[in-house]
Design a protein around this nucleic acid. Structure first.
Lengths: 336, 336
DNA sequence: CTGAAAGCGCTAACAG
DNA sequence: CTGTTAGCGCTTTCAG
């Protein structure tokens, strides 16, 4: 059964050349005459030569692997990101090693330290960054690109959505649709996305002469149940007539919970989410949301990371716009 | 900036021992006197020694990495599996390299061949298995465990749900709830899960004296839109009063599409899915489904794979039961 | 119980 | 343009 692996020297022998020539013929690193290339390639095919990753990496120092750290693959937004990244990686013959942190800083730290020696670049969707650990990675020379959540470490690239602008768009849209007493389901206190979305939301409300009562802000995890819990709090006594949730999963929870509590969406409460996951367009009522450009985010992050790995490009920050997708959850007809 | 990695010899030097002793002290492979261990460990910590994966692997032939091939991380069922597997792997200090095939056999083949030399075990959620490629992996000596979809190759382990029994349960449940003219949204023709679920469904209907008209079977991809399309076909002219979908995503599409077409669920059409993804309990009406034991599947598959990798355990097949979760989409009161 | 040394499979100098 | 050879960092015989 368990056949031993074919080594380069065996294909070299069969092709009647030296290992060096065989290596060069297969890799294209140095010029090799066409007939030799032909012979080597044939020999390699006949023997089903695969090469040994570890040996190559040990020699070259390149792993051809990127690390991808995400909070929760089970969340559709992150799943989309993972899918995109994996595709880009596969297209460029790279492997991706995936770490799921479940939003636990400890697991994130563990992932960082283990990825350090097993990848040559890291895409980090952080939720409680172990800043010293990240700094160590950077100093060690590992290219790191943050995605979604800002990671404030010099030398770390970043690709983010314009969360603050999204918050502003949400505020304006809700007010236009007749919101008088807006409420906010914010994300966990430590997450930059949550803070930025709130800041934009609050600022724009203020600009429009509306106001966000601090009593109408609740902090909840980025999950459907978080959205439900937040909604229960905001709607107890019916103080609020519009809800902006930091995340589509929360917003979907808000829609469900509102209706369960007997408040019609959008007639009695407007709901707006953030992310643009596909479920936002599938539930009833469909969810108004700020659409993030997921494939843009993933593509830019991947490209930046590759540039940093290959050509030592400097880290930089990229901010992509988000787009308001008005749907049923805010489709209230307004006088005027 | 980019600090060079610490090598074992450097910690050996600092500890005043040989590399061999340093290696043994850190790995515990051979007895080393306590004080030497102590000195080596201290030195390693002081230098922040990490070890070099490639070198270790080259020498030992072990990568400490498992490959995970899934059709689509974006599908909640697969996402749950990925999450579980990743957790088990992390707990045992293994990395997981993820491949997403998008249900494309070509990408699956590519993944298989690339994973062969970069993992020491493979978890395969296949959707069009390149049987020769899998056989090659097995002959090569790579432990492979199939999950979800059967892969009929000698030496490949398998962990599956009891799809046929699930189909039977669905049939009985729908009939009990008053189904007279059942329809089936089957998965893609080549998928074993689809065939088994259908077989059980058909057999049980037959046993109960009902019948599945071949005209009431449509084949669709395992996606929400597949479910919608299948439902349009089954409901054109309203031939069918119950729909069993091979997959929750399809079933959710069936619920949505039915209602969009003006057929109430469950009053005019009963809908039953298969998988038990969390969305099945979240949509309105909530979806009756056959609950797969996702963490059981993932756990068994992982354990089996590890056993095969570590102790050369023989491949074996495990079949886990599924459980009917009756919910609103079949909550029709029936006379009698 | 510890150390010296071989060698995993490959690529990159260096000669020719 | 091709071949010989050193050596990546580690583990593991083999001596002592």
């Amino acid at each position: 059964m368990t056949t031993r692996s074919i080594r380069l020297i065996e294909v070299a022998l069969r092709a009647g050349v030296s290992v060096a020539t065989a290596s060069n013929a297969l890799s294209g690193n140095r010029y090799v005459s066409p007939d030799f290339v032909e012979r080597v390639v044939r020999a390699a095919e006949e023997l089903d030569y695969r090469g040994n990753h570890s040996a190559r990496s040990l020699r070259t120092g390149r792993l051809n692997t990127i690390g991808l750290v995400v909070p929760d693959v089970t969340n559709p937004f992150f799943a989309e990101i993972v899918r995109s990244i994996e595709r880009f990686a596969a297209e460029t013959d790279r492997s991706v090693v995936l770490s799921n942190t479940d939003f636990e800083p400890a697991r994130e730290s563990t992932a960082l330290s283990s990825l350090r020696s097993s990848t040559d670049g890291l895409l980090l969707l952080s939720t409680g960054p172990d800043l010293p650990a990240v700094r160590a990675l950077v100093e060690f020379g590992l290219p790191v690109v943050a995605l979604d959540e800002i990671v404030e470490v010099a030398g770390v690239g970043g690709v983010y959505s314009d969360n603050e602008a999204g918050g502003r768009l949400a505020a304006r849209h809700l007010v236009e649709r007749g919101a008088k007493v807006p409420g906010l389901i914010e994300g966990p206190p430590k997450l930059p996305t949550a803070a930025l979305r709130r800041r934009g939301f609050e600022a724009e409300l203020h600009r429009l002469g509306a106001r966000l009562d601090p009593a109408h802000v609740v902090q909840q995890p980025y999950s459907l149940d978080g959205g439900r819990a937040g909604t229960r709090a905001l709607l107890a006594g019916g103080q609020v007539d519009a809800i902006f949730a930091s995340t589509d999963m929360q917003a979907i929870g808000a829609v469900f919970e509102s209706e369960d509590l007997g408040y019609g969406v959008p007639d009695e409460v407007l709901v707006c989410g953030f992310d643009g996951i596909s479920w936002s367009g599938r539930i009833r009522p469909s969810l108004t949301t700020l659409q993030q450009d997921v494939s843009g985010l993933a593509g830019q992050a991947f490209d930046l990371l590759v540039a940093m790995m290959e050509t030592g490009s400097p880290a930089r920050d990229v901010i992509l716009p988000v787009q308001l997708m008005p749907r049923e959850s805010t489709a209230r007809r307004v006088a005027g």
